Amino acid sequence: MNGYDIIDEAVVDAPTDVVWNALVAEFRGAAAWWVPHNTFETVTGAPDVVGGEVAVTVHTKGVDNGGLKLRFTARTRSVEPGRRLSVEYVDGVFRGPSDFILEPLDDGRRTRVSMHFRGRPHGKLKLISKVADIGAEHSKATLAAFAALDKRLAKGVRAR
């Protein structure tokens, strides 16, 4: 397999600006709703500024549960605040672009959030992808994260 072209989306019961702030906070390292599957740490700049880099760790068995840790770096390539964050995976186990897109619904009361992932496995993940369905695991983790985001924001918990 050469790579993945996956779109995962969900509807979050919060306005777009609130979802945007939660997304950016998560990429800054908040560990509020993408855990236990992924954690993020700013490397340089800021995730919502072109050129900013974020280290991503995929915890295959969950944070603090052992298992393989898959690491890669995302560099921000374009930003439309409150609407779209586009990154390029430039180092580690994935290469290629991804987009996070927010679309207001219901007069701005809810938001459709989507991730368009077009990563290609690299290094050890390229070998693993021959025996494991990385695309299915990616979607499972992304949809779980979006559900956790919805639950968190529905309770009125805002990004740090």
Rank of each mutant, 00 (worst) to 15 (best):
G108F: 05
D48N: 09
P81T: 04
K130L: 13
N38E: 13
K126P: 04
H59C: 05
R71Q: 07
W33R: 06
Y89N: 11
A32T: 07
D99A: 06
R110I: 14
V43I: 14
D150G: 07
V90N: 15
R160Q: 08
A74N: 15
V19E: 10
H116F: 03
V49H: 01
G67C: 03
D48S: 08
K126L: 12
F100H: 10
E41R: 11
A159Y: 03
K124C: 01
I134E: 09
T73W: 03
D64T: 11
A141C: 15
L127T: 14
D107L: 05
V35T: 10
N21S: 15
A25Q: 01
D5S: 15
S98Q: 15
V87P: 04
D17Y: 13
R110A: 14
R75S: 08
R83Q: 08
R83D: 01
V93E: 01
I101F: 12
M1N: 03
A145P: 07
G92Q: 13
F40V: 08
D99R: 03
V50N: 10
F117L: 11
G108Q: 04
H116R: 11
A55Q: 05
T73A: 07
W33F: 15
V11G: 04
L127A: 14
L143C: 04
T76H: 10
M115A: 12
N2C: 00
A14Q: 11
A144I: 01
G123Q: 10
R75Y: 09
S139K: 02
H138P: 05
A22I: 01
R83C: 03
A30W: 00
R112S: 07
D64R: 13
K140N: 00
A55K: 10
Y89S: 12
T73E: 07
V79T: 11
E41N: 09
L149S: 01
V24F: 08
V131G: 12
T39D: 09
E80W: 06
A132M: 15
T142D: 08
R158H: 11
G3S: 04
T76N: 06
A145Y: 11
